[in-house]
């Protein structure tokens, strides 16, 4: 079980969190033309990276804040956790 440092609450066990996918994917803006390819990339296409990965987690059973976690997908090492509005 991972040990994740919520930037709002501190170190907590993984079972308080839920995973929310790749944090580098940006939703296309509303009311803008989006090509099929760009939309597919946003909705479906994900790189299954081995190594450092920036991802969203929600502190579901805690402060309910969505946070960013920089994690190694192979070793589970967590390098950094950030608030939603912070950049790496």
């Amino acid at each position: 079980m991972l040990h994740i440092k919520c930037p709002h609450c501190g170190m907590r066990s993984q079972n308080e969190f839920s995973y929310g996918g790749d944090a580098t994917v940006k939703r296309p803006e509303l009311n803008k033309e989006v090509s099929d390819q760009d939309w597919d990339n946003f909705v479906y296409n994900r790189k299954s990276l081995r190594g450092k990965h920036l991802e969203f987690w929600q502190h579901l059973s805690g402060c309910r804040q969505w946070i960013k976690v920089e994690r190694d997908t192979a070793t589970h090492e967590i390098f950094k956790t950030l608030k939603a509005n912070e950049d790496i």
Binding site: S18, G20, R27, F56, Q58, L60, R64, Q65, W66, A84, N85
Partner: peptide, 13 residues
């Protein structure tokens, strides 16, 4: 609820 929080916190803060 999680869905709404996702959009409010991450997409349209």
């Amino acid at each position: 609820l999680s869905h709404l929080e996702y959009y409010l916190q991450l997409v349209w803060p």
